[in-house]
């Protein structure tokens, strides 16, 4: 029937030699490995682009008016620009307008929601001490209720121009009266409060470490390969530290 008849002692009482067993598995593994590597390489760039685009879109969403962004890392208590692609610990993102003027930070923060961890990215403008936008990166909240934290435009709009002092507070829907309050979602109070708590935690962690308003790291054009060096002007932490790394 098949064209491999000559190979087949199959099904006989004779035991194939151990070498043959190991050999078969090794060949199968090898072929499989080659195929997987080929697919990995073929899809690598698209996947990376997808991820980068997703992040960029999220940053642009939480910081209105942003045209450029760059990644900042905390090193020795100072924020430095990082151009390294690899996944490093806890970055935040700085957003700039077309002329390269600093607009604000996009800060990722995560914490427990009603079902599972909620990952939030929110925009923060240090000059006015305002949260200017919020976007849920990842969540598994109850569909139809908890997922309104990103599906309900009215809830998301809550986070436009929100004061962070003394703290953001979620209040019952329709009772928002102060600039640091948001309207919680009816029926999803826990999820709403979780988002607020996550943002407050992010603020606690980051706000004290941000440089004085006006002294933010300047935008560095990656395309021109000025990469590792800080631009002139302002008190941007110079590249001395990160050049070595």
């Amino acid at each position: 029937m098949s064209d491999q008849e000559q190979q087949a002692p199959a099904g006989g009482a004779e035991e194939p030699s151990p070498n043959r067993l190991v050999g078969t598995l090794a060949v199968a593994g090898l072929i499989s490995g080659v195929i997987i590597i080929a697919v990995y390489l073929a899809t690598f760039n698209t996947i990376k682009e997808n991820k980068a685009r997703e992040l960029r879109e999220a940053v642009f969403r939480v910081l209105p008016g942003v045209a450029h962004m760059q990644k900042l890392l905390l090193k020795d208590g100072k924020l430095v620009v990082s151009h390294v692609e690899e996944k490093d610990e806890e970055p935040i993102y700085a957003g700039y307008d077309k002329e390269g003027n600093f607009i604000g930070y996009a800060i990722p923060s995560a914490g427990p929601g009603f079902q599972d961890t909620i990952s939030v990215l929110y925009g923060y403008r240090p000059k006015e001490r305002l949260v200017v936008g919020m976007w849920i990166l990842d969540s598994r909240e109850t569909p139809g209720l908890g997922d309104k934290i990103y599906k309900d435009a009215a809830f998301v709009a809550n986070f436009d121009r929100l004061e962070v002092d003394p703290k953001i507070v979620a209040v019952k829907k329709g009772t928002k009266s102060k600039p640091n309050e948001i309207d919680a979602i009816t029926g999803a109070t826990i999820s709403s409060k979780a988002v607020v708590r996550i943002i407050n935690e992010g603020n606690e962690r980051w706000l004290s470490k941000l440089p004085e308003p006006g002294s933010e790291p300047a935008f560095e054009k990656v395309e021109e390969k000025k990469g590792e060096k800080g631009k002139e002007g302002q008190e941007h932490p110079p590249g001395a530290n990160d050049e070595g790394l």
Partner: peptide, 12 residues
């Protein structure tokens, strides 16, 4: 099927 010895078929 005829290449694969029956002892290691599941792994394959």
């Amino acid at each position: 099927k005829s290449f694969i010895p029956k002892q290691v078929r599941i792994s394959c």
